[in-house]
Design a protein around this nucleic acid. Structure first.
Lengths: 240, 240
DNA sequence: CGCTAATCTAGAACAAGTTTCACACTTGAT
DNA sequence: ATCAAGTGTGAAACTTGTTCTAGATTAGCG
C-alpha cells in the first residue's frame, strides 16, 4: 500500500542530531539494526500510525525540539528500540510526518483547484493557500521543515520523495500537461526552492508573511516565461 | 572593526542541537551565562580567531558532525565554558564560520568582476563561481549550510547578516545601483533562495552540478524582468 | 500443538551538546 | 597597590539522540 518502512539502503541508521559515527566514516556494511520487513502486518501498520500520530501531536505542541524520541516511544506505546526500528532517526521520523502531511494537503488542495487566469497565478494561489494551511500549525511546520533541511544523505530518498510530491502539487496547479517542457520543469524547481526557503525564513522569524507571498509570486512569474510544449531547451544545461 | 561577539539579545544561550528548555518556554529573563563583552581585548580577539580557525579546520575535515564542541575547545586551547561564552551554540559557531568565509569569498569575487553582457549573466556567472569555490571544501560547505538551515530563531540575527552579505554579492554582480527597484530586490531574493536550496540539494546528493547551474541560471532570468529604476511595484505585496 | 525466526520490550549504556561549579587570573578604577 | 567585577579554566553533571543486551511475545509453519 502506501510507503512502508524504508530499508535505509546503506544500513546504519545514525543520522539525527547527535550522530555517533566516529572519525572514520564506515558507510557500507549493513551491520547493526535491521529495519522491519517491507510488508507490514496489521499490528505493525497500527504501530506505525501510532508513532506518526504521536510525533505529529508532539511537534504541533512544541516544534522540533519537543519531539523527543523517548516521549514519542512512550506516547505511542512502543519501546524505544522499536521506534528506532521503524524510523532510524529523529529526522527520518519527522520527514515521514512531512510525507504524511503533504499527502493530506495534496488531497485537500485537489478538492479546491485554483481559479487564476494564468498558470503563474494558479501556482501562486495554490502555494499561498498551502502556506496558510501550514500557518495553522506553525510548530508542526517548523519541526517538519527543520528536519527536512537538516537531513543528510542518509535521508536523501525520503527527502527526494517529499520533493517529488511538492513538484506534483505545483505542476498540477499549472494546469499544464503532466509531462511539461524542461524549461517549465526548471521554473517549477526554482519555485519549489523559493517556497522552501521562504518557509524557512518565515519560520525563523526572518521574513514577514507579506514578503513570503511577494517572493512566491515573483518566482511564479518564471512560469510565464516557459512554453508548455516540449522540446525547447531554455535556461540551461551548459555546465561549468 | 569586523563584527565582534554578539550580544545574543534575549539572554539565554541555549539553542543548538539538544536544546534544554523544558516544555514551558521561558524566553525573557536574561538569567544564565553572559556573553563576552562587546568590545574585545587583543587576547580575546586572538581567542576568537583561534576558535574560528579550529572550527573551520574540523569542518573541512569531516563536516558538520566532525565539529565537536569539546574538540573545538581543545583544538583552539580554550576551555569548553569559554567556547560557549564566545559562541552560545554549535550552530552559532558554524554560522560565524560562514560569515567569515563569506567575507573572504566576497573579497575574492570583487577582484574578478564577472564579464557577462547582461545582468542576469553576470549574476549567474558570479554564483557559479562561488559555487565552485565551495566545491573545493565540500565538507566545510556542508557544515556551514547545515548550520544555517538548522538555525532557529535564536540565531536569526546572525543568519540575517549572512543573508545580507549574500544579497550584497548578488547585487554587486548585477552592476546595477546599490539602491535597486523593489522588483529587482524581489528577484534577488528569489535568486538567493534558489542558490541556497540548490546548495542544500547538491550537498545532500540530491542534485547534480548540472542541475544546480541550470536552476541558478533559470532563477537569474528573473533579473531581466525587472527594470533598474525605482518606483515600479511589481510582483507582489497584494496580501492574501 | 510445538518449534524457530523475527519482532518487541525494558532498561542500561554511550555519545555529544549544553550547563554548572568552584576556583584562578586579568583588568580597570580608585 | 588593591579591590571588585569580569573572564577563563577544568572537571563534572545533565539532557537527549542513538545503540546494545537479554529476555518476552508473536507469527508463520510443519
Amino acid at each position: 500500500m502506501d510507503q512502508v518502512i524504508r530499508a535505509t539502503a546503506g544500513g546504519r541508521g545514525a543520522a539525527g542530531v547527535g550522530e555517533k559515527v566516529a572519525k572514520v566514516d564506515k558507510p557500507g556494511a549493513g551491520s547493526g539494526r535491521r529495519p522491519v520487513s517491507p510488508s507490514l502486518t496489521a499490528r505493525q501498520e497500527a504501530r506505525r500510525r501510532r508513532i506518526l500520530r504521536a510525533s505529529t501531536r508532539l511537534a504541533a505542541r512544541g516544534g522540533f525540539e519537543a519531539v523527543q524520541m523517548r516521549e514519542v516511544a512512550e506516547s505511542s506505546e512502543v519501546a524505544l528500540g522499536t521506534l528506532y526500528r521503524y524510523f532510524p532517526s529523529k529526522v527520518h521520523l519527522l520527514v515521514a510526518v512531512m510525507q504524511d502531511q503533504l499527502e493530506r494537503l495534496h488531497a485537500t488542495l485537489r478538492k479546491q483547484p485554483p481559479d487564476g487566469d494564468t498558470a503563474a497565478e494558479r501556482v501562486a494561489q495554490t502555494l499561498v493557500r498551502a502556506f496558510r494551511a501550514l500557518q495553522r500549525e506553525p510548530r508542526l511546520a517548523e519541526a517538519m521543515v527543520r528536519a527536512l533541511t537538516f537531513a543528510d544523505r542518509s535521508v536523501a530518498p525520503e527527502v527526494e520523495q517529499v520533493s517529488r510530491q511538492t513538484t506534483a502539487i505545483i505542476l498540477e496547479a499549472t494546469g499544464g500537461p503532466a509531462d511539461p517542457a524542461p524549461g517549465r520543469l526548471a521554473a517549477v524547481r526554482v519555485i519549489e526552492h523559493t517556497w522552501h526557503a521562504t518557509l524557512v525564513a518565515w519560520l525563523s522569524g526572518r521574513a514577514s508573511l507579506t514578503q513570503v507571498t511577494a517572493d512566491i509570486e515573483t518566482a511564479c512569474r518564471l512560469i510565464e516565461l516557459t512554453d508548455t510544449t516540449t522540446g525547447t531547451a531554455p535556461a540551461g544545461t551548459r555546465g561549468a
